[in-house]
Design a protein around this nucleic acid. Sequence first.
DNA 1: CTGTTAGCGCATTCAG
DNA 2: CTGAATGCGCTAACAG
Lengths: 346, 346
Amino acid sequence: MTRRPKVPGRSTIIDVAEEADVSRQTVSRVVANHPRVAPETRLRVKDAIEKLAYRPNRMARALVTRMSLTFGFATVDMQDLHFGDTCAGMQAAAREHGYYLVVTELDTNDNGGMGTLETLLTLGVDGVAIFPSLLDDKTLEQFAATSGCPVVVIGRESKIPNIVSIAMDETAAAELVVDHLVEGGKKRIGVLMNEMFPEVVHGRYVALQRAIEHHTGVESPPVEAGHPKIDEGRTAARVLLEKNPDIDAVVAFNDIMAMGTLLACGDLGLRVPRDIAVVGYDGIPFGAVANPPLTTIVQDSIGMADAAFMALLTCLKDGSPPDGEVLLWQPELLVRASTGLASPRT
Amino acid sequence: MTRRPKVPGRSTIIDVAEEADVSRQTVSRVVANHPRVAPETRLRVKDAIEKLAYRPNRMARALVTRMSLTFGFATVDMQDLHFGDTCAGMQAAAREHGYYLVVTELDTNDNGGMGTLETLLTLGVDGVAIFPSLLDDKTLEQFAATSGCPVVVIGRESKIPNIVSIAMDETAAAELVVDHLVEGGKKRIGVLMNEMFPEVVHGRYVALQRAIEHHTGVESPPVEAGHPKIDEGRTAARVLLEKNPDIDAVVAFNDIMAMGTLLACGDLGLRVPRDIAVVGYDGIPFGAVANPPLTTIVQDSIGMADAAFMALLTCLKDGSPPDGEVLLWQPELLVRASTGLASPRT
DNA sequence: CTGTTAGCGCATTCAG
DNA sequence: CTGAATGCGCTAACAG
C-alpha cells in the first residue's frame, strides 16, 4: 500500500526483498556478503537482485555507515602537465579498493580554495587529496584542522600538521642535475624559473642554488624568471644569456621553458650542448623530439598519486589522523643530447 | 535525549535548529533561500549556521530530492591529450551551476566499461558524460537505455538513441587540411593513421579519403597505420614514404605521429615542406617548436566539454531524454611552416 | 539464520 | 510565517 514514485529503472532494496520474499536485512546481508545467510536464501536473493538489476544506492548507505567510499581529489589546474597522470594514478588505486573519486578544480579566488574544499566535504568524501602548486600552507592547515577527514597533499613538500605531503625530493633532483652538468665540464650554471607558483618554485630554486654552490662554489647563480610558456621562456632565457654571457648551462623550471631556452640559444647563435647545456623538469614526451633532445628530470606522478591514495586509506583504517608526515619521492635524470652526455661511451 | 555519535566537526541541521531555537524546517528554508521566513528569524539562523560552521549534507539532501547535483564523467584514458582540457571544461561549467563531477576511468575489461558506468550510477549522479575513443556503440546504447539519466558522449560522432554526442566535424577538418595542401600545390597526399581506437580513426580516415578524392581525384590515397607514438609514427611514416615515393604530403592522425613523420622525412633526406608537407591533428603546444613547426587541426576541447555539461543540464531541466542528437564542433586549421604556407604574404 | 526497530540528515507535504 | 509528521534507501543493533 506504500507509494513508489521512483526513478524509472532503479529498484530498491525493498523491491528485492519483496521479490525474494525476505526482509530488507537479508538482502542487505547478501549484498554485504555477510556469512550468516542460508545458502538457499542467498541464492534466492541473488536471483532477485539479478532479475531486478538492483544496485545499492551508495548515498543511502553512506548516510548510515558514515563512509562513502569516495575520496575528493582537488586540483589547482586541470590543465597541468601532471594532472592526467596523477588523476590516473589515484583512480587506478581507487578502483582496486572499491573507491570513487570526486574531482574538482579549486577556485582559488574563493578564499584561496577553501570554499571549494568545504563543498567537497558536504559531498561526504572520506578523505581529500590536494594536487596543488600554489595553495599556501595556511589555507591547507586550516582546512585540515576542520575537515574531520584525512588530507594529503601531492606535489608540495611541506610539514603541515594533520597533513601527509607527498612530493618529489627537490634536493635530490637538484643534485642530479648539477652533478651531471659539472661532470660534463660545465661551471657557470644559470637558472630559469617560473614566475608563477611561488611555493613550488621557491623550493626548486633553493635546492638548485644549494646544489650549485655545493658543486661549483658559486653562491648566487644567475637567475631569470618568466611565464611557463615556450615563447615567454624563450624571451626570459635570452635575457638570462645576454646578461650573463659566460653561462655554459641553463637549468629551466620545466621542459616547456627548456624548449624556449633551446630556441633562445638558436637566436643567439649558441650551440647546444657545446656552448650551452640545457636541462628541464617533467620528462614530457616531446623532449625526445626537441632539437636537440632534452635532458630532463622525471618524476613518477602515477606512483605519487598511488601513494597518496594509500596514505588516505591507511589513515582511515588506522583511525589516526596524518601528522605532518612527508613522503619524499626520488627523481630520475633522463639524460639526452641537450647536455651532450647522452651516451658517454657509445 | 537523542544520542549524537557524529563526526568530529560536522554539525547537522538539528544542531543549527537548536542553536537558533527554531525547527529544522526553518533552517532548511533559510538554507534554500526560501522567501517565507521572517527576516529576524533568518538572521538568527544564519548566525547559528555561521557559528557552527554548518554545511548541509548533500547526500542526505539528494536522497530526498532525488537530485545529487553531481554528474559522472567517465573517460577511457586519463592520460589522453585532451583529458585535462575536457575535464577542465566540464568542471568550469559545473562549478558555475553548483554541480560537482565524479570522475572515473572506465575499466574496459569489465564488460566494455559497463561495470564502471553502472557503479557510477549507484553514486547517484544526475547525468553522465563519457569521453571515449573506443567504446563501441552497442555498449553505449545499452547503458543509455537502462541508466535512467541523460547521457552525452564527447569525441564520437555517432547517432545513438537516448544519447547526445558531441564531436569535431571530421568532414570539415578533412576539407580544411586537404584544401590547404592542394592550394599549396600538393597533389599526392598520403595518410598516416592510428592503428588503435578504430571508431574514431575510421571516421577521420573516411573523411580524409573523401576530401582527397574530391580535391585531387585520387580514390584510394596511400595509407599506413601505426601506434600513436613518436617512434612508431616514424617507422610507419618511413614505410609509407618508401612505398610511395611520389607522395608530396602526409596527413597524420595526430601531432605525435606527425612528429614521427618529420623525423622520418629527415631519415630519408626529404625536406619539409618543400619535398613533403606534413599536417597533424590536436594542436599540442610542442607543435610550435617542432622542426619545422607543425601545421595542425585544432579542436576546442574545452568548448566541447562545456557543451556536454550544458546538454546534460538541459536534458534534466526539460525532462526530455536526449535523442540521438549530434552536436558537431568546427575545427580550425593552425597553419605553420610544415606545410610551407605559414604566412603567404608576409 | 532471519526479522524488527530505529534512525543517518535532510526536504516535502500539510497544519496551524 | 512556522512547526509536526513522514519517508528517501539503507544498515546497525537487537531480538527471536
